[in-house]
Computed example of a mutant assay.
Amino acid sequence: MLLLLDVLCLAGVLWCAWLIAGLLRGEAPLATGVAVPVAAALVLPGFIAGIVTNRRALRGRRPQSWFIREVWAPPVELPRWALAAAGVAVLAFWVAGISAFAGISENPRPGDQAQDRQVRHEQRFALGVLGGVGVGGTATAAATLIRDRRSRSPY
């Protein structure tokens, strides 16, 4: 099940990247009401699964709080090149989302063209956030899958 959620999360990342590329070219491939919910539906389950499955039991010294038995751990099982690629992808989505703020204004100029431009910037921001979240979810779920495979391996 985690593998399926990881693949869906990766599909959501590619979906966001494709839509952002179209928005940067000045065209809106899909309406915001379709593009953003589909991206969220693809990305969020894998992100949640990656976060939930990357918990580790505390070892060694007893925790000071009786209710803290597990902590979240970063995806250290991934190779360094994969972590670096994930970092670059998160940065790219972050830049795409944050740079959309430059075009968002509180009072857009009257006219359909200005309104369309405003909607494209808002869509790019939402897709940038979801794309970055999807990269994180894909990385954490992949790290869990690698850790599980290593723990089951007889070697």
Rank of each mutant, 00 (worst) to 15 (best):
W94F: 15
F47K: 01
E70H: 12
W72K: 01
S65M: 10
L58R: 13
A92V: 10
R62M: 10
A85L: 14
P79A: 11
L44K: 02
L83A: 10
I68T: 12
I98C: 09
L91H: 05
I51K: 11
W94R: 07
L44W: 03
G50F: 06
R56M: 02
N54V: 00
V52I: 11
P75H: 05
A82S: 12
A73Y: 09
G46R: 00
F47Q: 03
R80I: 03
A100C: 06
S65R: 13
A92P: 03
R59G: 14
L58I: 15
P45C: 11
W72T: 08
P79N: 04
P75Q: 01
A86W: 06
A100L: 09
A89T: 02
R62K: 13
I98R: 13
V71P: 02
V43I: 13
R80H: 08
A39L: 09
A100T: 04
F93P: 03
R55P: 02
A57C: 01
I51R: 14
Q64F: 08
F101W: 12
L42G: 04
L83H: 00
R59Q: 15
R56A: 07
P63I: 04
G87E: 00
A89C: 11
V71L: 12
W81L: 11
L42A: 10
L91T: 06
I48E: 06
V95I: 15
W81N: 06
F47L: 15
S99G: 08
V90G: 07
L42K: 06
P75T: 05
A100G: 14
L58Q: 03
P79R: 08
A84V: 09
I48F: 13
I48N: 00
V38K: 04
F101D: 01
P63R: 11
I48Y: 09
F101S: 02
A96G: 06
I98L: 15
A85R: 03
L78Y: 06
G60R: 10
L78S: 06
E70K: 10
W72E: 02
L58S: 02
V43H: 04
V90S: 07
V90K: 06
R55E: 12
I68Y: 02
V38C: 07
A57G: 11
L42D: 01
S65D: 14
P63A: 13
L42E: 01
E70Y: 11
A84E: 00
A39W: 07
T53D: 08
Q64W: 09
W81P: 00
R80P: 08
L44Y: 04
L44T: 05
L42C: 09
S65V: 07
P79Y: 00
V52P: 00
P75K: 11
Q64A: 15
A40T: 06
W66I: 12
G87Q: 03
L91Q: 05
R61E: 15
A100M: 09
F101L: 13
G103K: 04
G50V: 03
V71E: 13
V71Q: 12
S65Y: 10
V52G: 00
L42I: 07
A49E: 00
A82W: 01
V95D: 03
A41G: 15
F93R: 01
Q64S: 13
P45T: 06
G60F: 08
R56D: 01
R59I: 11
A57D: 10
P75S: 08
A100F: 09
I51A: 11
